[in-house]
Simulated assay, not measured.
Amino acid sequence: MKNLKTIAIALFVAAASISVNAQTKKIDVKASTIKWVGKKVTGEHSGTVNFKDGAVVFKGKKLTGGSFTVDMTSLTSTDLTGEYQGKLNGHLKADDFFGTDKFPTAKLVFKTIGAKSTDVYTVTADLTIKGITKPVTFDITVAGNTATTAFKVDRTKYDIKYNSGNFFQNLGDKTINDDFELTVALKF
């Protein structure tokens, strides 16, 4: 019985020291930004989408984790105004794009993190859009209470095939690139 108590105390102390070393920092969803760019044969559109919540995890000064939820209903174009902005926003939220009525959030969860250089990490994460989860890999730079990254996402992997030249023939100047670009700035 005495040995069992000693083992239990040792495990408790070990678990406590591990949790003390890891520090979870919630992101400031108002100050953190996601900007997107979608390109097509005849030009491009750009805009923003907001975080719902998120956090990064550090062990000392080393990035060791992260998880983020994006409010897809906040998706908006910033390169258009008025009626044209409303039409594009409506189409992006419709089922042939992000289907925000059925899928109001997207999620990104860090899976592996490797140090690339001082304050720069290579992250492989699970990205879930429209209920479909696929891996994405990107570099992220951490400086103080901020982190930044930019990467591309292949929309067709998430069943967003509208006007994709890889799925439809003879689209001509109606073709939309499969990749869209994200630029993310986190404040925590």
Score class of each variant (00 low, 15 high):
A16P: 10
L75V: 09
P135G: 01
G47M: 05
A55N: 14
S117G: 07
I132N: 03
G114T: 13
P104K: 00
K59L: 14
A106Q: 05
D96M: 11
V123F: 04
F97T: 05
K35W: 06
V49Y: 01
T146C: 06
K25Q: 14
A115P: 08
T156D: 07
K39H: 13
K59G: 11
T156S: 13
G144A: 06
L75K: 04
K152E: 15
G47I: 04
L108C: 13
F58V: 09
D159H: 11
T146A: 11
A94S: 15
K52S: 15
V49C: 10
A143L: 13
T64N: 09
V41M: 09
T149S: 14
A15R: 01
A14V: 15
V29A: 12
D159K: 15
A106P: 08
T122K: 11
E83H: 04
K111F: 11
K25N: 13
K134L: 08
T100N: 03
K111L: 13
T122A: 12
G60Q: 04
I129R: 00
T133K: 09
G65I: 02
F58G: 08
K157A: 15
S74V: 07
V57C: 06
G38L: 10
K25D: 10
F51G: 01
V142M: 05
H45T: 09
E44V: 09
D126W: 00
F98M: 10
L80K: 01
T156I: 14
T42G: 07
G90P: 06
N145V: 11
F68V: 07
A147G: 03
S74N: 11
T64D: 12
A143S: 14
Q85S: 12
Y84E: 13
N21L: 15
T81I: 08
S46A: 13
F68Q: 00
L63V: 10
V57N: 09
V109L: 12
V153A: 02
L92G: 01
K111G: 12
S74C: 07
A143C: 02
K25T: 07
L75T: 12
T148R: 01
G60V: 06
G65W: 02
F58Q: 05
T69Y: 01
A31Q: 15
T48W: 07
K134V: 11
D101W: 01
Y84S: 10
K59T: 14
T73S: 14
S32R: 00
V109H: 00
I113P: 10
A55D: 14
V20C: 12
P104Q: 00
I160L: 08
S74T: 15
S117I: 07
A125Q: 06
T148I: 12
I129Q: 01
A106E: 07
K157D: 15
G54D: 04
T112A: 06
T76F: 00
T42Y: 06
S32N: 04
S32P: 10
V109A: 11
L127G: 01
N21I: 14
A150W: 04
V123H: 04
K59M: 14
K40H: 13
T149V: 10
M72P: 03
A115F: 03
Y158G: 06
I34T: 06
G114A: 14
A94C: 13
G65A: 03
A14G: 08
K35A: 15
P135N: 03
V70W: 01
T48C: 05
I140H: 02
V29Y: 03
F12D: 02
L92H: 00
